[in-house]
Design a binder for these strands. Structure first.
Lengths: 161, 161
DNA sequence: GACGATAGTCTGTAAAACAGAACATCTAAT
DNA sequence: ATTAGATGTTCTGTTTTACAGACTATCGTC
């Protein structure tokens, strides 16, 4: 037996690191509506990305109904604004207020310290490696389309995809 | 501005990869009570680790009350058994049944395929790197003690820790 | 201008986490 | 031995959260 301990399971390691990250950032981002996800929304808003709420929700991996609450809280706190998209009156453009930009700067700094703490067991080179690998996985993930995962893993017939 | 896009955020990458992993393994482990966490419990039970339910819950990052449900489901499916610990009659020792070991072998194989799919964008060397880095982070995480995180990040006074 | 599709919001339901009490048992101090 | 406090597990109830579906307004197209 090749020591298939729980510690060797990728899922366990991933979940463990993720929990640690959420715990550390939960402290760092305390008071910011939505926690880490609120921070990501605020980041996107500050950059004035042209994406709609729906596209943003998809990229952040949250349901569109959840995105509504998330932005509601951020707007109620005066950190972001919903403005009508002149090109599409169904959509809203998200923009950060001055207070939002200031809050984002603070949060980014607090987040940097929290990340340093989470990544403490790794040396600088290893941290860069991890960031690169995760970013590569996240951006080039083939699994954005659930159908392809099912098809690949289970070799399903049926042309529903 | 140094392109602080959402894609550059460690939290986003981590969450994105974690979601992708949960999605893929959710397919692979369909039918196994508890999903990925049920798999981890089953793994620990199969190895006959001497840990109590509580220690196991802590290592897996779940609440102790949740661990009860999790084991309930696995036991109801005939995959694990709860036996009284002869050394401590409060505690129960978890052991996998023959059916549980067979199911675990299947699940492990399905999981291997799912992981291959998730890690598809990486070459073999990079996959090993990622596994090593995550395992190092998960096992040597300084944040197992929440107090230390708070103390380090916010430099709190007060001797509550 | 009629049709289906899309962006956002709202409503209700289902599932999950969590806090706390309860019970049995262990350990340690007296 | 007896008591006091701590620990392992389970149960109960509360709160949060995600999610499916309906609804309104608007877009693009025929």
């Amino acid at each position: 037996m090749h020591t298939p301990a729980v510690e060797a399971d990728l899922g366990w390691a991933l979940g463990s690191v993720f929990r640690g990250y959420l715990r550390a950032t939960g402290e760092a981002l305390a008071g910011l509506p939505g926690g880490p996800r609120g921070y990501q929304v605020l980041t996107s808003a500050e950059q004035g990305e042209p994406s709609s709420q729906l596209a943003l929700a998809h990229r952040l991996g949250v349901d569109r109904t959840v995105m509504t609450y998330l932005i509601d809280d951020l707007e109620r706190s005066g950190l972001v604004e919903r403005r009508p998209d002149p090109a599409d009156r169904r959509a809203r453009l998200l923009s950060a207020t001055a207070a939002g930009r200031a809050r984002l700067a603070e949060a980014t700094e607090a987040l940097r310290r929290a990340e340093d703490h989470v990544l403490a067991p790794l040396n600088p080179a290893e941290r860069d490696q991890l960031r690169d690998l995760l970013r590569k996985l996240a951006t080039e993930a083939p699994g954005e389309n659930a159908c392809r995962v099912v098809a690949d893993v289970a070799a399903l017939e049926g042309g529903s995809c």
